[in-house]
């Protein structure tokens, strides 16, 4: 009988052990999750310290502006070394530009810093974004078959068009040539053109441009009533100050085809705008571009065909401007932090 009494206590002790184990087991995932969250939050705060200080390098170097890039490069290397010691990864791409306080044409210094832990093949492309797309009317248009001017006076409200020499089924229009004369060098030219509404379905229109050697086929075999085509025709720049297009139309249904070319849209760019360089890890590439003070530019940085980002640069006459573009990757076992941003300054 005495044993029965002990059994109550032994059973109670077993139940208590089970309850304690159960409780611990229930709490364990919660504890681990909570600890993971705390670690992640801590790492994010630490990463924000790095990002803040990278930007602060510019503030600190503000009055010795010639040192800004040197100091960013140095601080990037310093940060990477220190983070590596802590088994963390720091990947950093930095692009900056500096323009002097001057008027007219001048040099803009550009630097790319590669701290991506791998070599890259970097490309910089500078576009003058001043005014964006601009309209350009043809300076001349004629019927290539008989050499006649199609329209003596060309303006925007008078579409440049032709229906001459084409009637009946399967008629072919004369080749129509439109000449755009310019003293500028352009790139990424966009042309807008259209066939006449009402000519439907099977009218075919092709567009060619003169590349200095031969007529270069751009696009065509379009059979629709109203076509607006946009696309790069940089291949048509033969550096002679002219863009010449040839439009060729074939009617295949009702014996009537009209082709209109109203104007072309042109994206102006300055001359030598693309530069490339192979960059080893932990190196900087210093280069420069010729710019016109007071104009706005878009600097595109790309590498290895997989990365492309743009930096907007607004210049101002008699003002020295500094623009820094940061692409930061901070990686820890628990957390990854990525950020891309641009900072612009007017230097003293």
């Amino acid at each position: 009988m005495k044993n029965k009494g002990q059994m109550f206590l032994i059973t109670a002790a077993i139940i208590i052990v089970i309850l304690v184990l159960l409780k611990t087991g229930i709490n364990l995932p919660e504890i681990l999750q909570r600890e993971k969250e705390l670690k992640s939050r801590f790492e994010k705060e630490f990463f924000s310290n790095i990002v803040d200080e990278l930007v602060k390098v510019i503030d600190i170097s503000y009055h010795q502006s010639s040192n800004i890039t040197n100091n960013i490069f140095d601080f990037g290397n310093f940060t990477r070394k220190r983070m590596t010691e802590r088994l963390q990864t720091f990947k950093f791409l930095y692009v900056d530009s500096m323009t002097p306080a001057s008027n007219g044409s001048d040099t803009m210094n550009v630097t790319v810093i590669n701290l991506l832990n791998e070599p890259i093949s970097a490309t910089l492309r500078l576009n003058n974004s001043e005014g964006g797309l601009e309209e350009m009317l043809p300076t001349y248009a004629w019927n290539e078959s008989d050499g006649r001017d199609i329209i003596a006076s060309i303006n925007k409200s008078d579409n440049t068009y032709a229906t001459e020499g084409c009637s009946g089924l399967f008629c072919i229009t004369p080749n129509l040539r439109f000449n755009f004369t310019t003293s500028e060098t352009y790139d990424n030219v966009t042309i807008e053109w259209k066939t006449t509404p009402g000519d439907i379905l099977s009218d075919l229109v092709d567009l060619y441009c003169w590349n200095g050697t031969y007529w270069n086929y751009l696009f065509g075999s379009v059979s629709t009533t109203d076509v607006n085509y946009s696309g790069s025709i940089s291949v048509c720049d033969n550096s002679d100050g002219n863009y010449t297009f040839k439009v060729f139309g074939t009617d295949t249904d009702d014996g009537s085809i009209s082709i209109f070319v109203d104007y072309i849209w042109i994206n102006k760019t300055s001359g030598d705008t693309v530069k490339s360089s192979g960059m080893a890890d932990s190196t900087r590439w210093d280069t420069n571009f010729t710019i016109t003070q007071g104009e706005n530019y878009i600097l595109t940085v790309s590498y290895d065909g997989t990365y492309e980002e743009t930096v907007t640069i607004a210049t101002e006459a008699n003002e020295s401007k500094y623009v820094g573009f940061f692409d930061i990757n901070l990686i820890d076992s628990e957390t990854t932090y990525k950020d891309k941003f641009q900072k612009s300054y007017t230097l003293p």
Binding site: I50, E53, I60, S61, Q64, F75, F78
Partner: peptide, 17 residues
């Protein structure tokens, strides 16, 4: 250990951990 990075003080660049 905990690190805090500093880029320096006003007009005086000095990277410190």
């Amino acid at each position: 250990s905990v690190s805090y990075f500093l880029a320096g003080d006003f007009d005086d660049y000095n990277a410190r951990d």
